Computed example of a mutant assay.
Amino acid sequence: MAATTVNLARQVLTLLIEKYEAPADTTETTSFELLGFDSLVLVEVSVDLKKKYSVEIGDDELAEADNAAKTAELLTTKGVTV
């Protein structure tokens, strides 16, 4: 994973832990399903990501990504850099 993607994955993971109460031992590869994130939570996460990175990301895209690492890769493909 490139440095930008690694940094984005950490930022997404921090958001999930701090705002959505994912367990502290959650990793970048822990699936959203394992965390118990339903479609409503993914909609909320997508809104937060849009606000933070000024990029459209659908809850369906998040469901397909299924974890912080793949969400970071998705953000990178949409032109997000950190």
Rank of each mutant, 00 (worst) to 15 (best):
E18S: 15
L13C: 13
L35Y: 02
T29H: 10
V12M: 13
V6L: 12
A9V: 06
E56Q: 11
L62Y: 04
A63F: 09
L74M: 04
G58L: 02
E18K: 15
T29Y: 03
E28Q: 14
N7W: 11
T4I: 07
D66F: 00
T71Y: 04
D66Q: 07
S39Q: 09
R10P: 05
L16R: 14
A2V: 12
S46Y: 05
V43G: 01
E33T: 09
K78V: 07
K51C: 08
T5E: 15
K19R: 14
L34K: 11
D38Q: 11
L35N: 05
E21V: 14
L35M: 06
D60H: 01
E28S: 13
N7M: 14
A22Y: 08
L42F: 01
T5Q: 13
T77N: 10
T26S: 13
V12Y: 10
S31F: 00
L75F: 02
D59F: 05
V55F: 03
A9S: 15
L42Q: 07
T27N: 11
L62I: 09
T5H: 08
A2Y: 09
R10A: 14
E44A: 06
T26G: 06
L75N: 00
T30W: 05
L16A: 12
S39H: 03
N7S: 14
D60E: 03
L75Y: 01
G36V: 11
K51P: 06
L75S: 04
A22N: 11
K78S: 04
V6A: 14
E64W: 02
L40R: 10
A72Y: 03
A3Y: 10
A63K: 12
K51G: 02
L8E: 08
T4L: 04
L74K: 06
D60A: 07
L13E: 10
V41R: 06
N67C: 11
L62K: 08
T4P: 09
E73P: 00
K50F: 01
P23K: 10
A3S: 13
A63P: 03
V43R: 02
L35I: 10
V43K: 05
E73D: 09
E33P: 04
K78M: 07
A24N: 13
L62S: 04
R10G: 10
I17F: 10
L13W: 08
G36E: 05
E44Y: 00
A68H: 07
V41G: 00
A22L: 12
G58Q: 02
A68V: 08
L42N: 06
Y53S: 12
E64G: 01
L74D: 08
F32Q: 09
T76Q: 04
L16K: 15
G79H: 04
E56Y: 01
V41Q: 00
K70A: 09
A65K: 09
G79K: 07
L62G: 10
G79D: 02
F37N: 10
D25P: 04
T29R: 11
T29M: 07
T27D: 07
I57Y: 00
T5C: 13
K50W: 00
T71V: 15
E64V: 12
E18R: 15
T29N: 12
K70P: 02
A72H: 09
A63L: 11
V43S: 03
V80A: 07
L74Q: 00
A68P: 00
T14M: 11
A24V: 12
Y53F: 15
E73N: 12
L75G: 11
A22T: 14
Q11L: 15
L62R: 05
T26P: 11
G58V: 00
S31Y: 04
V47Y: 01
